[in-house]
Amino acid sequence: MGLFSKEGTLKILFFGFVLGIIFWGGFNTALEATNKEAFCISCHEMKNNVYEEYTSTIHYSNRTGVRATCPDCHVPKEWIHKIIRKIQASNEVYHKLLGTIDTREKFEAHRLELAKHEWARMQSTDSRECRNCHDFESMDFDKQEARSANRHEQATEYGWTCIQCHKGIAHELPEGYDPADDTPEAPKESDE
């Protein structure tokens, strides 16, 4: 009887509420824990290959000391996008168990395929993770090298996105891949 009394309903509501907080909090804490660089490089597949290469790039060490870590570039910030990426990422655990890329040779053999996934993902989101930190609007083209400013002006004019020109920004490019094949070209004057 007690359950259906007014008091009982309140109790259930209360317990549900508390459980919800615990569950939700725990879930998000787990989500956070898997969103640290230390977690990513707990797998040697990630540590020995991509991490080592990344340590000699500007996003690891630079003049101002602002770093971009693995999740900054690879895991979306907004909750819903993050969940989707995490579900996709369980595929990585599966391949870890299979040993798909457990040696340097196997990694190199798969690298083009993995890189292509990342490029496609970034292309489809207009390089959202890069734009979490960088933004054409906030770039002072006058302070950039002419080479950069010229290309960035074209990019804003024709709606290109960062990853079209900045492949291999944090890791070595796959063997035999020529970025010049994919970099966009401004249409000729006469075409317009």
């Binding site: 080479r147 063997e175 020529d178 010049a180 966009p184 070209e185």
Partner: peptide, 23 residues
């Protein structure tokens, strides 16, 4: 920022036959 390794040559991204016009 341009690396020259056995696998890739970062300079050719802009100076190669294929790339120079675009860049």
């Amino acid at each position: 920022k341009y690396r020259i390794t056995l696998k890739n040559n970062g300079c050719l991204k802009c100076h190669s036959e294929k790339a120079y016009k675009k860049e």
